[in-house]
Design a protein around this nucleic acid. Structure first.
Lengths: 153, 153
DNA sequence: TCAACTTAGTTCAAGCATGAAATTTATATG
DNA sequence: CATATAAATTTCATGCTTGAACTAAGTTGA
């Protein structure tokens, strides 16, 4: 019935996913700004560093977060200015640097992570836990070209 | 078992949705750039205008697309430069203007829309149609604070 | 009429994101 | 060793996005 290549159902799925993620992201952006005078990208960097307590190189950060190198440079610059992270020299390699959370960064992150989890539960409240679980599983299976890269989460 | 407010399953769901939408968006961005020397936001504007052939005001565009006014100004400026849309004066109201597709804009959009649909099918190929249908439906139900605004899609 | 308010849109500064070019340092290879 | 190549990061130009401030035009009502 449909053409060989094109399925309207996938397009519909994509539009739903996009709409949902935009909605949530916009709401989170606003809350991060108001509550913490911060942003989602900064939170993502802090979260990655929290998970890797030995620190991460700039290039590792950009792999884990799947964003460009230049992007990470800017975000880390601002986090350094704010005293939430530091760039530590790497002994064997003067090109590289290791980014680490400061104590302040770690405690800021703790606050933000608690709020983040609470907000997500609030914003996705229309999905009963069982359904959320199921949906997460279905979406996981389908992760495309997920060629075992950094594998965040 | 879980705390009253917080459910890990919703957080997991959110992270899946975010990951999937980032992956697709990044891929689409790259393809729009390479194939059409254009962007997703520009495509979104063209798509809205195609749907509303009488044209849309700036404020209507920003409502439909759920982005800020200033944002729409910039994107439309560039589309006007490229000759894909025009700003038409509104008879009764000298503050407003109606944005409309040009013939060129309409035919550019046709090309892009065909490719877009094809790409989505390719990128979401791991979801069989039935599953895509089902997932789309489940995600639809849950649309939060979807207070019957512009109702894109 | 005309001042107060509202509405439509633009401008602006800041931040995020990209890809390409440049810089600096490390590593090979002759 | 010396030079070529590769790797880690930064810089830069461009574009998207926001929220806040601003301009211009329409609307209201004393």
């Amino acid at each position: 019935m449909d053409s060989v290549v094109t399925s309207k159902s996938r397009l519909r799925l994509w539009l739903r996913v996009l709409k949902l993620s935009r909605l949530i992201e916009n709401e989170l952006r606003e809350r991060f700004r108001k509550e913490f005078n911060s942003t989602l990208p900064r939170f993502d960097v802090l979260a990655s560093l929290e998970r890797h307590s030995d620190g991460l190189r700039m290039s590792e950060l950009s792999t884990v977060l799947r964003v460009s190198n230049g992007n990470v440079t800017g975000i880390v610059d601002r986090l350094v200015e704010e005293g939430l992270v530091v760039r530590v020299a790497v002994p064997g390699d003067r090109r590289a640097s290791l980014v680490k959370l400061t104590d302040d960064g770690r405690s800021q992150f703790a606050l933000q992570a608690e709020a983040h989890e609470r907000w997500i539960n609030e914003l996705l409240a229309m999905f009963p836990e069982e359904q959320a679980e199921l949906l997460a599983k279905q979406l996981e299976l389908g992760l495309p070209f997920g060629k075992a890269l950094g594998e965040q989460v």
